[in-house]
Measured scan of single mutants.
Amino acid sequence: AEKTGIVNVSSSLNVREGASTSSKVIGSLSGNTKVTIVGEEGAFYKIEYKGSHSYVAKEYIKDIKDE
């Protein structure tokens, strides 16, 4: 089941290729951006990003809701 969340950062949140802080950064999301969460892996959520799937750190996503 998909969930949505809100990016909870003051500046921007790195979007990564994989579920690791050493993964390549492929983009960023600004605070209060709504994201669609399709899964989770460790400390990361797998999200829909620009037509494919990428990862963001869970600690920076708030207001998780089931869609």
Rank of each mutant, 00 (worst) to 15 (best):
K46T: 06
V56A: 04
Y55L: 01
E17N: 09
K65N: 12
K62W: 10
K50F: 11
A43K: 09
N8R: 13
V7K: 03
E2F: 15
A1H: 14
S10R: 13
G42F: 04
S23W: 02
G39T: 03
I64M: 08
V56C: 03
I47L: 02
A19L: 04
I47W: 00
G31N: 15
K62A: 11
K3Q: 07
S11T: 14
A57Q: 13
T36C: 11
E40N: 04
S20E: 06
T21F: 15
L29W: 02
R16A: 03
S54V: 14
L13T: 08
A57W: 08
R16H: 15
D63Y: 11
S20A: 07
G39S: 06
S54R: 11
S28K: 14
V25K: 05
Y60K: 06
K65D: 11
S23Y: 05
D66M: 14
K46W: 05
S52D: 08
S20R: 06
S22M: 10
N8Y: 09
A57G: 09
G18P: 01
T33E: 10
V9I: 11
Y60P: 02
I64T: 07
T33F: 06
S22P: 02
E67H: 12
T33C: 09
N14G: 08
L13Q: 04
V9E: 06
S20D: 08
I64G: 06
A19V: 05
T21G: 09
E40T: 07
D63M: 15
A19T: 06
K65P: 09
T21S: 13
A1I: 14
K62R: 11
K58D: 00
T21C: 15
Y55R: 00
G51P: 01
V35H: 00
E67S: 13
K46M: 13
Y60A: 09
D66T: 13
S10G: 12
I26T: 05
E67L: 13
G42N: 07
F44L: 01
G5N: 03
S11C: 15
S54L: 07
I6E: 05
I64F: 09
A43H: 09
I37Y: 00
S23N: 04
E40V: 08
E41I: 09
E40R: 04
T36K: 13
V25T: 06
K34N: 05
S54G: 15
R16P: 01
E40Q: 08
S10L: 12
G27V: 02
I6P: 02
A1R: 14
K24M: 08
E48N: 09
S54Y: 15
F44H: 03
A1F: 14
S10I: 13
H53K: 05
V25S: 05
T4C: 13
G39F: 03
I6D: 02
S20Y: 07
G31Q: 11
K46C: 10
A1W: 15
K58A: 05
A19Q: 03
E17M: 09
L13V: 15
Y55P: 00
G5H: 04
V25A: 05
I6L: 09
V7T: 07
S12N: 10
K34C: 11
G31F: 12
D66P: 12
G5E: 02
I64W: 08
E41G: 03
Y45L: 07
I26H: 03
V9L: 08
L29P: 01
R16E: 01
G39Y: 03
L29I: 10
S11G: 15
S52I: 12
S22T: 13
G51H: 05
N32C: 14
E67C: 14
S28I: 13
E67T: 14
V38L: 11
V38T: 06
S10K: 13
T36L: 11
E17K: 07
E2Y: 15
I6A: 04
N14T: 11
G42R: 03
Y55N: 00
N8W: 09
S23Q: 03
I61P: 00
G5L: 04
D63A: 11
G39C: 06
G18E: 12
H53M: 09
D66K: 10
T36I: 14
K34I: 14
A19H: 04
D66W: 15
E40A: 07
I6Y: 11
S52Q: 12
N14W: 09
I64C: 09
S54A: 15
N32V: 05
G31P: 15
H53R: 05
T33N: 05
S10Y: 07
I64Y: 10
N14D: 15
V25D: 02
G51D: 07
G31I: 09
I47Q: 00
S11A: 10
I26C: 07
I37C: 03
I61Q: 00
V56M: 02
I37W: 01
N8S: 13
I26M: 07
I26D: 01
A19Y: 04
V7S: 04
Y49V: 03
K24V: 06
G42H: 04
K58L: 03
A43E: 15
K62C: 11
F44Y: 10
L29N: 00
G5M: 06
S28V: 14
V35Y: 02
A43C: 12
Y49T: 01
S52P: 02
G39K: 03
S12H: 13
T21E: 14
Y49G: 00
V9M: 08
Y60M: 08
K58C: 03
K46Y: 06
S30A: 14
L13M: 07
Y55V: 01
E41F: 08
K58S: 05
H53Q: 08
G42E: 06
S28R: 13
S30L: 14
S20M: 06
S22D: 13
G5V: 05
E2V: 15
S20P: 02
V25G: 02
G27C: 05
I37R: 00
E48I: 15
S12V: 12
L29H: 01
G18T: 12
G42L: 05
I61G: 00
A19M: 04
T4P: 05
G5D: 02
K62P: 02
I6N: 04
V25M: 05
N14I: 14
E41A: 07
K46E: 08
K3L: 10
E17L: 09
Y45A: 02
G51C: 07
A19C: 06
T33L: 06
E67I: 14
E67Y: 10
K34H: 08
E40P: 01
S22V: 09
Y45M: 03
L13C: 15
I64Q: 06
K50C: 13
I26A: 04
N8T: 12
S12C: 15
V7Q: 02
S12Q: 12
V38R: 04
S22A: 11
G42Q: 04
V38P: 00
G31T: 13
G42C: 05
I47R: 00
Y45R: 01
G5A: 05
K24G: 06
T4N: 07
Y49H: 05
E40F: 05
G27D: 03
Y45F: 09
K3R: 14
S30Y: 10
V35Q: 00
T4W: 12
G39D: 06
K46H: 05
N32G: 15
V35K: 00
S12I: 12
D63W: 12
I26V: 11
K24R: 13
K34T: 09
T4S: 09
E67K: 13
Y60I: 03
I6V: 10
K62I: 15
T4E: 07
K46P: 01
K58V: 04
